[in-house]
Amino acid sequence: MAVIRWKPGFFGWHRDPFAEMHRLRREMDNLLATHERGIASTAGVFPALNLSEDEDNLYVRAELPGVVPEEIEITTKENNLIIKGERKITTEGEKVSYHRREREAGSFRRIISLPTRVDADKVTAVCKKGVLTVTLPKAAETKPRQIEVKPQ
């Protein structure tokens, strides 16, 4: 540990008042950067979801590494999407000793209300490389319709 002499100066006891200002500014920058990226709070429910849309579909995505597709259950009810499942981590024999154990097992269940009406019969879901994608075709009445202007 370095011992620094305590030197009271013009700005109180700070060694360098500008260093302190720089530190504050850096912290503010970091804070703003996170905000600007537009990360919504997850409401604390697993899994974290990304929702996007194009002209025809809504897409709900979640990262579920190590969850086998058979363990995921997707249901739609009214205009809600329910994602339910379990992540299992198999035990690796009794003779092993762990250095790190950061991956967690457990069950999850999340309900999302969808922003537009969807065609519940045509919802499809794929889980590939640990990423779940639910494709929800928008209901016909919500799609933008182009109206042709006829010449007389």
Binding site: R37, G38, I39, A40, S41, T42, A48, L49, N50, L51, S52, E53, D54, L58, Y59, R61, E63, P115, K129, V131, T133
Partner: peptide
């Protein structure tokens, strides 16, 4: 990583990156 989704999608809610 491979990109998730195509480019002509508009993001509505982003909880993870």
């Amino acid at each position: 990583v491979e990109p998730q989704g195509s480019e002509n999608e508009t993001s509505l809610v982003r909880e993870y990156e």
